[in-house]
Simulated scan of single mutants.
Amino acid sequence: MYHLKFFSTILLVVVSHTSVGLTQSFQQTPLYRAHAHNDYKQSRPLQDALKNRFWSVEADVFLVDGELLVGHSRDELSKDRTLRKLYLDPLKQYFQVQKREPDEKSPPFTLLIDIKTDGEAVYQVLRNQLREYEELLTSCQDGKTVRHPVQVVISGDRPIEMIEADNPRYAGIDGRLSDLDSDKPSQLMPLISDRWTSHFQYRGKGKMTEAERKKLREIVRQAHAAGRRIRFWATPESEELWKELVDARVDHINTDQLEKLRDFLIPQIQDSP
């Protein structure tokens, strides 16, 4: 009887401690600017991003035998690494507990899906999968946005006309800098992404030139004026560059080094949306 009571006491302490830890982690303000580039290459896809308070992750997908597999190239694919298993189902479970809904001041969690090849074929399968997560995903029906915790954005080989024609639609389009003056509504194209090294000479060492700083801020101003967020890929893993991006109010900062960016952003959290 003594051993049973002792075990029960220990179990209660462990459960209580775990519950407190989960509650505290849920109450932490997300790092809205933190974007896990090629997140599926982390040791624990999605889970490491959430642990580090990231609010945006990227998954590359291929269509293989009717299923969406996650990986950077075909030789990396595995049948047990599906988009459902690594991202859609865990996000559904997470937000069933988390209960955080987006509002005008805080953006939805972004799931950036990069279609590597065969955009139209992939999207036909993807749209059917996304429909099953209606209560999780921000959607658009008859031109009206229905807000939910997660926003899917399609990048890579984007079948733009197919996405645009969907009603209801459970995904948006990732634009490019050439789309800054696009007349597409922000609920269709919520994000503008482009390669940093194609537009800027600054590599995160020393001072950024005033001309490039002005150019960066004008890009952000134009994107925000249209209701779009902005992201650059191929950015050096440099705190000097990250500071320029934060100061310019770039919405998503790419990294493969989750903890490094987390530690940089936490003191900047007052600047988050």
Rank of each mutant, 00 (worst) to 15 (best):
N167Y: 12
V70S: 13
K116Q: 07
R84Q: 13
K51F: 08
R81P: 10
G66S: 05
S73R: 11
Q96Y: 04
I113A: 00
P149D: 00
Q124V: 11
Y133I: 00
T110E: 05
F62K: 09
Q129M: 11
F54Y: 15
E58W: 01
Y170L: 12
R84K: 15
S56W: 03
S56R: 04
V146W: 10
K92I: 02
N128I: 10
I160C: 11
T117V: 14
D75M: 02
R176S: 11
Q93V: 15
E58V: 02
Q47H: 15
R81W: 15
R100V: 01
D48S: 09
P149S: 01
I163L: 06
L137C: 08
S106D: 05
L63C: 14
D114W: 09
Y123A: 08
E101C: 00
A49L: 03
P90T: 07
Y94Q: 03
G71D: 13
R81E: 15
F62I: 14
P90F: 06
V64S: 08
I113E: 02
V61K: 12
L137K: 02
K51V: 13
S139R: 12
E164H: 09
V122N: 12
I154C: 11
Q141K: 14
Q129E: 07
F54Q: 04
D166K: 04
L177A: 08
R131N: 04
Y123H: 10
V146F: 14
T82K: 05
V153E: 03
G66W: 08
L130N: 01
